[in-house]
Nucleic acid binder design. Structure first.
Lengths: 229, 229
DNA sequence: CCAGATGATGTGTGATCACAATTGTCGGCC
DNA sequence: GGCCGACAATTGTGATCACACATCATCTGG
């Protein structure tokens, strides 16, 4: 079970507070889809896996609940990784299709040659994972690529919105991509994006990012419709 | 000091958990601008004012920090109501100008005659507050009006995004509007909005909401520029 | 052999205590 | 009279305990 490997997500020797470290660990695990939707978790179990008392876990989890990355089931009040309804996934797609192209446009005009180089590297490791059929590696690299872009925009509010949206899509995305296999994964628009960044062309960057996201989310929307039937 | 009246925000006799009640109380107080930006607060003080132990307050506050409605100062790690930079306010304006018209458009096609009646009533109380020069009453009524619309959209994700954005703008809005007085407050587009709802016209509703928000946020942007000088 | 009651376990929630760090406040000194 | 240092109060963080409730296992009675 995935939960056991959690402690590897803990940043070691950090001077940040425990609940921040726990939050980071859980957030990363969630966006990378370590937890499948519907997975139930518990404070004490997580605390045990992370070698901390339940206290910091409570605060980290409270924050994740606020970001809809976790939920308390109304019936038993027990903790769980949320499943996505078709309606909610549709809203997520719309929201992502607005914020993330916006971030790409902002980042493009501020792009530096260094950033372009970093993006090329990230995209290389992504392609390697793809060719090896490594879904986990693909998701990790894809996440790294996108957020390298978003960080470069220096737009905190939008950045956090994107982060929250990925937090919600992560678990479901992992399930879908696992089922599809890397062969059917969307041919991403990262090359167009890198080109737009090199040229500092905001509108091309915006459009490339929009297409990248829409294709990915379309896959998930199809999957959720299929699952409903 | 505003903090003292906090207990009136607590929903009495509710069977919800304490931290939820505390959260609701603080959230409402923040969106209505009871706390000025920069105001420092403390867990034990809030707990005392709300007649609960510090424990539920910690969880409520943790959630509000996640939503950027409160912040921990990096230096002291002490709790504070955040101030808005011009850049952040700009992002808030952009985000609100996207989500809230979206919500209005969705709600418009689902509009019922009952909703239209409710909106008319809310708008009446808003106008009364305006004519009396009652800034607090205006903000309360305006908040109620908008979220009556957003609730009708039945789009949870967008709704929560709007809620979070209001949470962040609330404290600053109160300061600005207090300085301006109700005379200079933006002539809202609520009548157009109500008309669009009666006709179930999504695009007119979207445009009216967009203009409503942009005018309000423009006032705040001017204020923040003035304050910077 | 199976169904229903009963105890054991695990759950989130809240209270209380301990601790290190920061802030605020007095008193005394120059 | 104004500044500085020691002491007291307050802060957020974490750990531990208690409790009500839900879930699950076991055992008993038919």
């Amino acid at each position: 079970m995935a939960v056991e490997a959690l402690s590897s997500y803990l940043s070691k020797g950090d001077d940040a507070s425990y609940h921040d470290q726990v939050y980071d660990a859980l957030a990363e695990a969630l966006t990378e889809g370590v937890f499948p939707p519907g997975q139930s978790v518990s404070l004490r179990t997580l605390a045990g896996r992370l070698n901390v008392s339940p206290m910091p876990v409570r605060e980290a989890v409270r924050r994740l609940i606020a970001e809809k990355a976790l939920e308390l089931q109304p019936s038993n009040k027990r903790l769980r990784v949320p499943s996505l309804s078709e309606d909610r996934l549709h809203q997520l797609a719309k929201a992502r299709s607005w914020v993330e192209p916006e971030l790409a446009a902002i980042a493009a005009v501020r792009a530096t040659p260094e950033l372009v180089d970093i993006l090329k590297e990230e995209d290389d490791t992504l392609m390697v994972a793809l060719s090896k059929g490594d879904v986990e590696g693909y998701m990790k690299a894809n996440h790294a690529f996108h957020f390298q872009v978003y960080k470069a925009a220096h737009a905190d509010l939008f950045y956090d919105m994107a982060r929250t949206l990925w937090l919600q899509t992560g678990p479901f995305m992992r399930v879908v991509f696992n089922k599809l296999g890397t062969v059917q994964l969307p041919r991403d628009h990262h090359q167009e994006l890198i080109g737009a960044f090199a040229a500092r062309d905001a509108e091309t960057a915006r459009k490339a990012m929009a297409e990248d996201i829409e294709e990915g989310m379309d896959l998930m929307l199809e999957a959720v419709k299929f699952q409903a039937a």
